[in-house]
Structure formats: structure tokens, C-alpha cells
Simulated assay, not measured.
Amino acid sequence: MDLHSLLGRHEPDLMASRWDEGRFVTSCTICGRPMVKPPGGGWLLARPRR
């Protein structure tokens, strides 16, 4: 795991965000990992869907 992931300093790509199933989704501009923003919340890393 890299230092970026350990510190949790992910930056959402706001220009690529889109609405999907009741939340905004995008990816981190630094590492490319998927991010979500639930209604009324802040940007978080997405959990893998099962």
C-alpha cells in the first residue's frame, strides 16, 4: 500500500462525476480508485459491490 492510501488524501475528479443509483460517483485524481458521495455526505472511497 502506498503512502497516498495510508494517509487517505484522495481527491475526487469533479469534472467526471456522475449520478448513479442515488449517489454521485467518480474516481480519485491521484490513484484512480472509485469514490462515491452519498446524499448529504462527503466523498469517500467506494466499497466493492458484492
Results as ranks from 00 to 15, higher is better:
residue 26 T to M: 01
residue 24 F to M: 10
residue 41 G to C: 12
residue 37 K to D: 02
residue 40 G to E: 05
residue 8 G to T: 07
residue 8 G to F: 04
residue 18 R to M: 01
residue 44 L to C: 12
residue 50 R to W: 14
residue 6 L to T: 01
residue 15 M to F: 06
residue 37 K to F: 03
residue 32 G to N: 07
residue 26 T to G: 02
residue 6 L to N: 04
residue 6 L to Y: 07
residue 5 S to D: 14
residue 7 L to E: 10
residue 10 H to Y: 14
residue 4 H to V: 13
residue 9 R to V: 09
residue 43 W to P: 06
residue 47 R to P: 05
residue 46 A to F: 03
residue 16 A to L: 06
residue 39 P to G: 08
residue 36 V to E: 14
residue 24 F to H: 02
residue 36 V to G: 00
residue 36 V to F: 06
residue 7 L to T: 13
residue 45 L to C: 07
residue 16 A to Q: 12
residue 18 R to F: 05
residue 29 T to L: 15
residue 39 P to Y: 06
residue 20 D to E: 14
residue 38 P to L: 15
residue 4 H to S: 10
residue 12 P to N: 03
residue 45 L to P: 00
residue 13 D to R: 13
residue 20 D to Y: 02
residue 35 M to L: 15
residue 37 K to N: 15
residue 1 M to K: 10
residue 43 W to V: 06
residue 7 L to C: 08
residue 14 L to I: 09
residue 25 V to S: 02
residue 41 G to H: 13
residue 13 D to V: 10
residue 16 A to R: 13
residue 23 R to S: 03
residue 16 A to S: 11
residue 11 E to K: 12
residue 2 D to C: 11
residue 8 G to R: 11
residue 32 G to H: 05
residue 10 H to K: 00
residue 43 W to H: 08
residue 42 G to L: 11
residue 48 P to A: 12
residue 42 G to C: 03
residue 29 T to D: 11
residue 49 R to N: 12
residue 50 R to N: 15
residue 1 M to T: 10
residue 42 G to P: 01
residue 28 C to I: 05
residue 42 G to A: 12
residue 31 C to W: 01
residue 25 V to F: 00
residue 31 C to T: 03
residue 35 M to G: 07
residue 43 W to N: 09
residue 48 P to S: 07
residue 29 T to I: 15
residue 11 E to D: 13
residue 24 F to N: 02
residue 5 S to C: 09
residue 6 L to A: 07
residue 35 M to S: 06
residue 20 D to I: 01
residue 50 R to E: 15
residue 42 G to Y: 05
residue 2 D to I: 06
residue 38 P to W: 07
residue 26 T to C: 11
residue 8 G to C: 04
